[in-house]
Design a protein around this nucleic acid. Structure first.
Lengths: 230, 230
DNA sequence: CGGCGCGTTGAGTTGGATCAATGTGTGTGG
DNA sequence: CCACACACATTGATCCAACTCAACGCGCCG
């Protein structure tokens, strides 16, 4: 029996990505159709309307998935971190533009081959289904925020969400993976409003903003109350 | 071999629901675990936070899936029409409240049994995966609307979407399945704003609003341009 | 007839956008 | 090393789209 390749054995996201649910011999299948690719910050992986050519696991870095209006207004509809799955199987053209927000490393699978792997390996398909359902949940929560929450609630909620994703347990300082402008694109507001809300939270003593993108949550309880979703 | 039951053979959504992709013998499996239920308008099928007990196909009627904030603001995150799938497999508690907006008929499957059916029948799982991916796309498009479109664009887009769902080809009159207030809940605005935008569209000659929930699209081209997404 | 749910319309308010100026850190070339 | 440009962030002033509050019209039902 073939040993799992070094690439997978050493992979940083072996235990958090789609691959986490796979046994070594199933992993070998993905391994055989995938290849690693390093993406420089700012580069676009796929344009909305393009052929849906690839699926991938994010190994490191942060990417954004965006939708935009004909006249160029842009909304970030998803952030992709290490371990997240990326791509639109069973679609011929993509509905999203995917852009690297930092240097990023992907484990890329040609879409058709990935689809074949789904067919051949029920476990893989099950894992993707569960992830897709989870993404749908996330999108629906975001709909509530965009539709019904005010600027302060959205910013507070965003900080808590990022902190959770970054596994911040204590009140340690963490680094936002996004600029103010990109936060604005996630939250459906302007850069100025994001900035003002952050300084409000800082003035209220709920967070500290030591420098640039650094954030520390000083009073989680009150921040959660302010965000309005527990 | 067992014949497909009369229930399925006569089913109004046999060819548009999840079931559409299934052969008769696969349908028999769903049939054996499912039962029909009629839901009166206004009744709640599942509350956010409840046990995730059932999945279902919508046979007739319209339902809403909502998220809400702690203080009671509500956002409709999905509308469910005949043929749509409803439920959250693989979750122990629901994240959504499901409410019938009209009298509705469901084909209900106990969640655990439905999950077993997914495991036993790869085709069914594939169909659900594809539907879930499509729902995710829809949610992401809605995110763009809530985040970046103004009231007029949202209302125009909503009318086009409903018209498309109702398969309106010509400029025939159709009946909105939602009240003004429910439209407001979908579009993340207030009842008054919905009403004003509708009368604007009417004044501009893009639509007719003969009476109550009746709508006719008079100038689809210009309405699409106004909505700003083709 | 009166009450009630739903929709429309008007008047006034406001939260967040827009426009504009200034600050801050970083890299680059003289 | 400084001067400068440039991207990003903050802050202020103003504006306006959508919300809020309020009145009223319409159809429906008891």
């Amino acid at each position: 029996m073939l040993a799992t390749s070094d690439r997978c054995a050493e992979c940083a996201v072996r235990d958090v990505s789609l691959c986490a649910g796979l046994a070594d011999h199933e992993l070998e299948v993905l391994n055989s159709i995938g290849h690693r690719k390093t993406i420089p910050s700012g580069q676009v992986i796929a344009w909305e309307g393009d052929d849906s050519a690839v699926c991938a696991n994010v190994v490191s870095g942060v990417l954004k998935a965006t939708n935009s209006t004909l006249d160029g207004r842009e909304q970030i509809v998803g952030l992709l971190f290490a371990g997240d799955f990326l791509g639109q199987p069973f679609r011929d053209t993509t509905t999203l533009t995917i852009t690297a927000l930092s240097d990023a490393e992907l484990c890329i699978y040609p879409r058709r081959r990935f689809e074949q792997a789904l067919t051949d390996h029920a476990k893989l398909e099950r894992l993707l289904l569960q992830r897709t359902l989870a993404s749908l949940d996330n999108a629906q929560v975001a709909l509530l925020s965009l539709g019904r929450r005010n600027a302060g609630e959205r910013v507070a909620g965003f900080l808590l969400e990022i902190a959770a994703r970054a596994h911040i347990c204590a009140d340690a300082v963490f680094i936002l993976p996004l600029s103010r402008g990109q936060i604005a694109d996630v939250l459906g507001m302007t850069i100025e409003t994001v900035s003002r809300q952050l300084t409000l939270l800082k003035s209220a003593g709920l967070v500290a903003l030591p420098h640039g993108r650094e954030v520390a949550i000083l009073d989680r309880k009150r921040l959660e109350a302010f965000a309005g979703n527990p």
